[in-house]
Design a protein around this nucleic acid. Structure first.
Lengths: 313, 313
DNA sequence: TACCGTAGCACAATCGATTGAGCAGATGAC
DNA sequence: GTCATCTGCTCAATCGATTGTGCTACGGTA
């Protein structure tokens, strides 16, 4: 049943008879026993902050499809951004002898990578760079630069006087946000603008935080900013109620961007420029790294995201 | 390490020494070996159509949290509504000796349930009723009735002349949609209205189908209907671009409902009445059924969904 | 006829845990 | 003093597959 009958010099006739008998009896090998003997399990593990987030659920989908295509069983654990839960989950997955581990959005990827190396388990860190491990990330810097440039173009067309847009959301301590901030600054510099620090409001990813930050900003300015970029779909969820209740004239004067994609954002009262991360590509690249002996640890692979323009632009 | 040291009359001192040594050596038992011996794996399987759908990803989240809380490892397989893939995935999960299986939105739940019974594996069908198996479903009928009644109330307030709303999306051959249609008809009957068949357009769940159906409907009527209920969030995704491009007056005359919830729908140009399925409750109930020997197969447990009113109503 | 090589299969060892059975020494009852 | 009981532990069997090794029959060659 292991598929090695030729190597073991079993005659084709016998192999056929065995296969026929197995089919007849609805027999299928116990995969735990097989895994025990072969020191591999056929399981592939994935660590994820949460499922309820379009970006992560797209990654989960791509992961599921990709692992099934390779004949493995996907084991996805949502760790709720809790470091302890992450550590426990890694231990669990390793205890099941997962053949490989894919880690998305962990709070301490370096520790996880060390643990995997100690257990000699292939692993890839997705969505954030990690020293000493293979990682696959979106090109946050260039993506945010393109988004910012697109928004600056719109501001120019609108003849807006106020130069740079504001950036709300994300955690500056995390590499993803840091890269996006670099991209933001770079795009402004290209346009001979300067991003004063007050324009960058990295208030975290929680909807409520973004909501509060946007309300405070509007109070400070006396109106909505002429350009606004929301860093992530969860932050957008918090900003949206505020934006959609602005007076018509005010929202018409505010060009909005979002670093993440949702089809719902294409149909709001106001246009939204979006960045769509290529989740299938991220996951395909991650799996390529897993079987490719070509990728030495410490490799960083970058996937370019996609700029999604509002309809008719 | 199995935790049975007391039953095996090991002295507490020795048990402590063993635990200390294990901690010291970073030892953790091989769960495949344990599973082999105990004829259980600590894995809980879940079958899901897809991750990229807020309803399903909420279920996945609840499943993940619930299984971790019980010390099991969640194995979620997205089968893309493909019957063959579903069958293969069930075989895979059974071959891994999953301790239990939760099936969401399968195309042939009865066949899956038979297979699980043959393998003597506890299982629960979620989101659709299944003869001869334990199933946990949303109360689609009452939910849709409440949604319809709420929309009728709004139509009354608006002084709309045209009686009943239209229902777009879903598959009338599936129990969930069938129940919702029953609820729709019942609410209309309560209001002394009759739902002519042309008002029920069960064109499937795909965004494009809903989009096409809505466009056709509007052409037929010469304008948007005064009341419109979209059956599921995916169908809404298709309807939204049409709705949001309607002239202001036209959309103002169209009261919209959706049988599903997304925070983005609370902030559109027009109000949306929504039904939110209680995913955590569905999953908690499913797990309760799994360990409760109280639930004989053939049990149907019903979870009431929640009516979400537009802001300020 | 003796020898060798090969095809095809049978048998036992192995993976790493859990668990049933048994054994030596201490304790207690009569 | 003898026997039964209990404590605490050791040892081997077991789960269900894969894999290493050996055995038999057969054909070919010298």
């Amino acid at each position: 049943m292991s598929g090695s009958w030729q190597a073991r010099r079993i005659s084709p006739a016998t192999a056929r008879r065995v296969a026929a008998a197995a089919a007849e009896l609805d027999y299928s090998p116990n995969l735990q026993a097989r895994g025990l003997r072969q020191a591999r399990s056929g399981l592939v593990g994935m660590l994820l902050p949460e499922h309820e987030n379009r970006y992560f659920s797209q990654l989960a989908q791509a992961f599921s499809v990709e692992s099934r295509a390779r004949g493995s069983l996907p084991a996805i654990v949502a760790t709720r951004r809790d470091p302890d839960e992450e550590a426990r989950s890694v231990e669990s997955l390793l205890a099941y002898s997962v053949d490989a581990l894919i880690v998305v959005g962990a709070s301490d990827p370096a520790a996880i990578s060390r643990r995997c190396r100690a257990a000699r388990r292939p692993h890839v860190i997705v969505d954030q760079p990690c020293d000493g491990a293979i990682s696959v990330v979106t090109d946050n810097e260039s993506g945010m630069a393109r988004l910012t440039t697109a928004l600056l173009g719109e501001l120019g067309r609108r003849g807006s006087s106020d130069g740079a847009p504001y950036l709300i959301g994300g955690d500056a301590a995390l590499p993803a946000t840091a890269a996006r901030i670099r991209g933001f600054r770079a795009a402004l510099a290209d346009a001979d603008l300067r991003a004063s620090d007050e324009r960058i409001i990295a208030c975290g990813y929680r909807p409520e935080a973004a909501r509060a930050a946007l309300i405070a900003l509007r109070e400070r300015l006396g109106r909505a900013p002429s350009g606004l970029i929301i860093n992530s779909i969860t932050a957008f969820e918090g900003a949206l109620p505020v934006l959609s209740q602005l007076p018509e004239a005010e929202i018409a004067g505010c060009a909005v961007g979002c670093f993440d994609y949702s089809p719902f954002l294409t149909c709001l009262r106001f246009p939204v420029w979006m960045i769509r991360q290529r989740t299938e590509e991220l996951m395909r690249t991650a799996f390529d790294c897993l079987d490719g002996a070509d990728a030495p640890s410490g490799t960083l692979r970058v996937v370019e995201p996609e700029l999604v323009l509002p309809k008719g632009r």
